[in-house]
Amino acid sequence: MPGSAHHLLEFVQHLINGLYLGGTYALIALGYTMVYGVLRLINFAHGDVVMVGAYVALFAAAGLHAPAPAPWYQTLLIFLLAMAACALLGMLIERVAYRPLRQAPRLAALITAIGVSVLLENGGQLPWVFGSQPRSVPELVPRVNILPTAWGLSVTPIELVTIGVTLALMVALQMLVQRTRIGKAMRACSMDREAAYLMGIPVNRVILVTFALGSALAAAAGMLIAVKTGQAHAFMGLMLGLKAFVAAVVGGIGSIPGAMVGGFSLGMIEEMVAGYGFSSWRDAIAFVLLILILLVRPTGIMGRAVPEKV
């Protein structure tokens, strides 16, 4: 194979990997950015909701005796179950942990968020919850290369499904936020919560819906990642959550398109840097990027400077 063709193939490979990785970061980043939008709170427990999503999918697959690979409708059912369960979990977290602190200083809510995260991670390790050992996740969607080996490229169905599902969910979310009554109310609440109240918008319910949506997207990411990597463990949400949070900040926290752009940018940059000789840097890139963006453009790529509210 001529050298230039080889380089091109390698580049295409990294492009696909970057899309996959970026899509998962973007899905998770959306939850951070939406909650920040309505509450000005970094929901540090969000990464752990990703982990719970993976486990719910794992248990649902076991409960349904899903074969590997599973028929598409079973995979879809498992997927929806994971999303629904995490939507409920997200609402529960907001109702129990954050709502009582609505009038409290912001630091209290932040510490509580970290507390919820620690609870999920360590509670998840209890033997009668998820256990402390990584669990293997069935190959609901095949993770084998579908291209001839001679091509020197690896593309797996799970990667393609992840990219497709990610894009579909983002389009759906964007339609919901832009076109529907509840979506407009979410935007109104994130611009001016008090003014939203004065128009009769049930702000607490809108906040619950925001948590439900963000958590459902996190669950989607959790399941897709678990099926791709073939395993789930109680701490899997930690690094994923941190990186997705960085993606949200890079894109401009509070901005939904920003989270998408930030997620794909981070995934792509991480893949390219790691793929072209700096693989030991993989987990550090997000934080280098974070520092750079905070120096150059603290509001993020799509973010606007919001005046601090009193």
Binding site: R187, M191, E194, A195, A196, Y197, L198, G200, P202, V203
Partner: peptide, 22 residues
Amino acid sequence: PDAIVRAGICQVPEGRRIFPNL
């Protein structure tokens, strides 16, 4: 506050407070 609006009382607050990006 939202129930008070549903009861029929609405306020135009000081400083207008319209939603700037709607």
